[in-house]
Every structure is written in structure tokens, then in C-alpha cells.
């Protein structure tokens, strides 16, 4: 089973976000970059399926040259190959990214190294467009399942589980297929020293865009102002316990 996982280099922001002066991107100078939890889970699932089927995992990203940092880290977990489509991320919209990822899939297939399964995150941690995987599936003419927590393969199908509105849903879809992953179903592994050493030797394929990007139609980003505070402080430290329990009594929550 040959699996492709699409990952994005994103700012490693916590709760507070800083923006660049032009309001076009998140300023990550102080926080650095990472790969989102959804995509880390996708990589973990891909490695497990590849191990179970004697297959391989290739990574693909569309982004700046520095994305090789994220690719090397993931290669250190046990992925086998990586492709970087070099582009300025501020010029890209989700349709551009999907087109470029589709081009990677078709070109690799044309050179005899096609994929049975493509995994992505459910949504990117920064742009949160909720659509690259679906657009990619349409570009390839493959079926797509979204927001799954586990992935297995059997008899030429990919079987996924996700948390649906009425309970846990199962999909079983013929390969080749696209699947987008939500964090939570698996615990991503850590790199081993041996893995990290091996990752250094992998040659990352670098490509350029196949078409002029259409962009994201972004006017600008803003950080919403904090909400006004009306908090009543009951006290400090353990001495506040009596005030807390008085409040619980007033609220009628004590049994």
C-alpha cells in the first residue's frame, strides 16, 4: 500500500496570535512552526497502515522552502519520501493547494509510483478552510471520507471510523481514495534517534507550481479584542474555600 500524506507548515500558536504588519499572515517569529495535530494523526495512521501492509508513506507539502524542517521531522518518524512544492504561502488559496497536490499524485503515478490512499488533515490549523481534501478528491476523481479518527485497509477498501451525530460511523470505500483525519483516534509517535539519522539522508523532491495561483481572496486578518471582564473574585488560595462553598449552596448545586 502506497500512501501519501499532505501536511502544512503552520505557525505554532497557542491562544494568542500576533499578525504581520500587513495583516496578511500570522507572525510566527516568536512561536515557530509546526504541523497540526490532525496532520500528525494522519501521519501516524499512514505509518500504521503502511507497516501493516508492507507499504510506504510519502509526504507532500505546498509551501516555503523552510517546510523541509517539518518534512524532515516527519521523515524521522518513519515516513519514506517527501515532496515539496515550493511556493509563497500568502499567494495560495485552498483550490491552488488542491490542484498542486493533485499534480503530485498524477505525476508520481505517471512515473510508476502512484498512491492507493491519500491522507490529509480535516482542516488546516491556520487557514481552517475545511476543503483541500475534498477538492483534491474531485480533482483526482476519487471518493473522499472526512473527519475520521481511525483508518484501516482490507480487500481493496479503506475502512474508517468517525464520530457522527448519531454515534460512531463507519465508511468503507474502494481504493484509491482520499481520507481526511481529525486528531484523537491515535497517539502520534515520537522520532527515534535512528529515524532522525535516516531522515537526514532522504532526498526531498522539490517542484514548482504548475499554474499561476488564484489566491485566497483575503482582504486582511484581524485579532478580535478581548471581551470585557465582570468577574467577581471570591478570594485567593485555600482560604477562599468557604466563599466557594457558600456560592455552591446559593446556586443549589450541593447534594
Amino acid at each position: 500500500m502506497r500512501i501519501l500524506v499532505c501536511v502544512k507548515r503552520v505557525p505554532d500558536v497557542g491562544s494568542e496570535v500576533m499578525l504581520t504588519a500587513d495583516g496578511q499572515s500570522v507572525d510566527a517569529r516568536h512561536v515557530g512552526y509546526t504541523v497540526s495535530n490532525h496532520e500528525s494523526s494522519a501521519v501516524e495512521l499512514a505509518i500504521r497502515v503502511a507497516d501493516a501492509t508492507g507499504g510506504s508513506v510519502t509526504l507532500a507539502t505546498v509551501g516555503p522552502a523552510e517546510s523541509t524542517d517539518q518534512l524532515r521531522h516527519l521523515l524521522g518518524l518513519g515516513c519514506h519520501a517527501a515532496t515539496l512544492v515550493e511556493a509563497d504561502p500568502t499567494t495560495l488559496g485552498p483550490a491552488d493547494v488542491a490542484r498542486e497536490l493533485a499534480a503530485v499524485v498524477t505525476d508520481h503515478a505517471a512515473s510508476g509510483a502512484g498512491y492507493d490512499l491519500v491522507l490529509l488533515g480535516n482542516d488546516a490549523a491556520d487557514s481552517g478552510d475545511f476543503q483541500v481534501g475534498i477538492r483534491l478528491a474531485y480533482a483526482l476523481g476519487w471518493p473522499v471520507v472526512n473527519g475520521v479518527s481511525t483508518v484501516e485497509t482490507a480487500d481493496g477498501n479503506v475502512i474508517t471510523k468517525n464520530d457522527g451525530p448519531d454515534g460512531e460511523e463507519t465508511f468503507s470505500v474502494p481504493l484509491p481514495a482520499v481520507v481526511t483525519v481529525l486528531e484523537g483516534g491515535v497517539e502520534p509517535r515520537y522520532p527515534t534517534l535512528k529515524g532522525r539519522m535516516a531522515a537526514k539522508k532522504v532526498e526531498i523532491e522539490t517542484r514548482s507550481l504548475t499554474a499561476q495561483p488564484a489566491g485566497a481572496s483575503r482582504v486582511k486578518l484581524v485579532v478580535p479584542p478581548p471581551a470585557p471582564s465582570n468577574v467577581e473574585v471570591l478570594g485567593e488560595g485555600p482560604e477562599a474555600a468557604a466563599a466557594v462553598v457558600d456560592l455552591f449552596e446559593k446556586l443549589g448545586v450541593l447534594r
Binding site: 491562544s15 494568542e16 486578518l221 484581524v222
Partner: peptide
């Protein structure tokens, strides 16, 4: 205007 970065920032975007 839509939520990005998990709601920590907002993006103004045109849908022409």
C-alpha cells in the same frame, strides 16, 4: 469575516 487559527484570529475575505 470568518474564524481562522481556531478562532484566535478573524479573516476578512471576499466571495466574488
Amino acid at each position: 469575516t470568518r474564524q481562522v487559527v481556531g478562532g484566535s484570529a478573524l479573516e476578512e475575505m471576499t466571495l466574488g
